[in-house]
Design a binder for these strands. Sequence first.
DNA 1: TTTATAATTCGACATATTTCGAATTATAAG
DNA 2: CTTATAATTCGAAATATGTCGAATTATAAA
Lengths: 112, 112
Amino acid sequence: MSNYKTIEAGQLVNIFKALANDHRLKIYTILTRCCTSGTLCTSDEASRYCVGDLDSQLDIAPSTLSHHLKELHRAGLIHMKRDGKQVFCSVNTEIMQQVHTIFSAKPVGVTQ
Amino acid sequence: MSNYKTIEAGQLVNIFKALANDHRLKIYTILTRCCTSGTLCTSDEASRYCVGDLDSQLDIAPSTLSHHLKELHRAGLIHMKRDGKQVFCSVNTEIMQQVHTIFSAKPVGVTQ
DNA sequence: TTTATAATTCGACATATTTCGAATTATAAG
DNA sequence: CTTATAATTCGAAATATGTCGAATTATAAA
């Protein structure tokens, strides 16, 4: 009935599953920080990190990181794009917006 | 440095863990719906459901529901208060507000 | 006090998740 | 073509989570 965007309940639970892990939440947090605190930033200049750069901040095996990135990607939380030998990751700001909406209003914007 | 409220990273992961399950997300969604769609509602009149009422909507054993409610409560997402033989549950709107904040701005409001 | 109702705790079992190392794929450089 | 670098896939092992039924606790009613 409503004409604003909603997240389907099944997808929402996958989003929470994806963020329900220390390493994945840290990855998402790193990708979410696009600029230094106190500086200005526009919403669409999300930061890009290649997998190797993330790995250096995480103390887990590359295969484990790869698995976690796949989970975040499956949930639609991040973008992944190969550029030469490297794969670059960035947040999906659109999904971020929608999750934001869910926590903002009652009744919640979830279709069942 | 900032003087607005933040959620500590460890708590945040527990919040996501709590919501990362079909049954628990449904419980939270039920509690979040304080009024019928289209009617007015003020933010602090969150609905109260007793455990038995939730159970009738969920198709799980009472012991399982009890376990899930404990998880939601541990994460700080819901309040639980006994009134006679029954225990009534309602959302913690303050936490809801804080999670909302996390998805609204970059850099995110998480202390590490 | 005894009985009934509401909810929780406990222990056991099944399923899912996390993690790693080894092997593999993708790409670029020599 | 061969070698090096970046990342992924696969299989196995350890840990965590979800589920139930039986027993227990809390409260109210008879």
